[in-house]
Design a protein around this nucleic acid. Structure first.
Lengths: 222, 222
DNA sequence: TATAAAAGTTAGATTAATCTAACAAATATT
DNA sequence: AATATTTGTTAGATTAATCTAACTTTTATA
């Protein structure tokens, strides 16, 4: 049985492994920063996780999840995203409110609960932020991720997921009435600062910053 | 902010206060036994709870919840019973499965979650075991509790709640197809051993033990 | 390549919750 | 009332997760 804290470390390592496609390994400081603890604390926990065969790592080396570690991490991610979906769809939580509560709910231990919840939600494939929800067997659709910033003038796309899940960004999206599935047309790319002039769901054209365009995953439409 | 453990102590004290109507105060050993810890541990925690003004107690004296302590305890009970209702009604958990998971869910911190959950469940008044669910303001219907064992031959009643919530008893009830609201008619009281000869929902008459009759709360019907 | 900077580790301390063993107080019994 | 039993407390230790401060290793840079 994993402790609440151990689970958080595994989830963090999994998330970090997603962040840098090429290299799924993480560093102690990186991990500590992600979890909001000091590096010394992370080192200690790493030893424990290694003892339990959840990570491979040696002193001053990189950290990598073992198969078991990854399996556990994915199970937690699955719970997190199912709960987010529940909060958003059934309890009318807003986009930016779901995360904090799901952080707690993801640690509830009950295999039956997770599976029943999934069934109750009618086997959703994506959470409210557009991220894929792992299946009970650990499978997880890998989606080609295109940033809005990668598109060119004339392209049209549909919002697929948010890269930045900060409250500030999510609330800004809500204000712009952008949600998963919203259509965006790139009218012009401003080379000077990388900002885009876009049409959102056929509305009045407006400008969005490069930072904005790099925080949104989209699916290019024909 | 209360810790997970502190919350459990408050809930235990509240439950114990319900158990003995007349005297709502509890003893150290009683409380330790209820929580499955050693008396020494309970004493330590008591000091902490006193420090936080959640209980009144002095050395070798009885333990009593303060108003704040009671308010907190009721809030936890409210969450517990709402979650039990959710599991039972929405996720098809059985009577005897809900408790264990609700024990975990009751510690999730989010006022919004509780209130939204209550709304989602359409403001239920009783949980699956027939116990009243406290309202957001702490109000809780106090129901006159009659034991099945108190009735006489010829009486008819409707099952109101279970006193014993052990898995064994709940599964036995399920086997007998007894649930909240089931009608029971007392055909005969066997003075020899206190057992009852009863008709359950108009079915074949059968005998139930005194222990059984003392584990079920009912509402007498005219 | 030598050194400075960054990254990571160790040692020692702290806090919360728990335990055991020994002791003290209150209650019950003869 | 004296004593035995039950009930409750204290002291000291343990474990998990965290910290700070000092130290070590690796990596980057002049």
């Amino acid at each position: 049985m994993l402790s609440y804290t151990e689970e958080n470390y595994l989830k963090a390592l999994l998330k970090l492994s997603f962040q840098n496609e090429e290299k799924p390994e993480a560093g102690t400081n990186e991990m500590a920063a992600y979890l909001g603890v000091k590096p010394a604390t992370a080192t200690d926990m790493l030893k424990k996780l290694k003892e339990k065969d959840l990570v491979t790592y040696k002193k001053y080396g990189k950290i990598l999840l073992t198969d078991t570690g990854k399996k556990n991490g994915i199970a937690i991610l699955r719970k997190h995203r199912l709960w987010e979906t529940f909060l958003y769809e059934k309890l009318d939580f807003s986009w930016d409110e779901v995360h904090e509560v799901a952080e707690q709910l993801e640690h509830i231990q009950s295999a039956k609960l997770v599976d029943k919840l999934e069934e109750f939600l009618d086997f959703p494939e994506f959470d409210p932020h557009g991220d894929p929800i792992p299946k009970a067997n650990g499978e997880m659709p890998v989606i080609a991720k295109t940033l809005l910033a990668e598109l060119k003038a004339g392209d049209t796309c549909s919002v697929a997921a948010v890269k930045d899940t900060s409250t500030l960004f999510l609330q800004y999206l809500e204000k712009l009435q952008i949600t998963i599935g919203t259509k965006i047309k790139i009218i012009e790319v401003i080379d000077f600062d990388g900002s885009l002039y876009v049409g959102i769901a056929g509305g009045e054209p407006r400008s969005v910053s490069m930072k904005f365009a790099e925080s949104l995953f989209v699916q290019k439409l024909l």
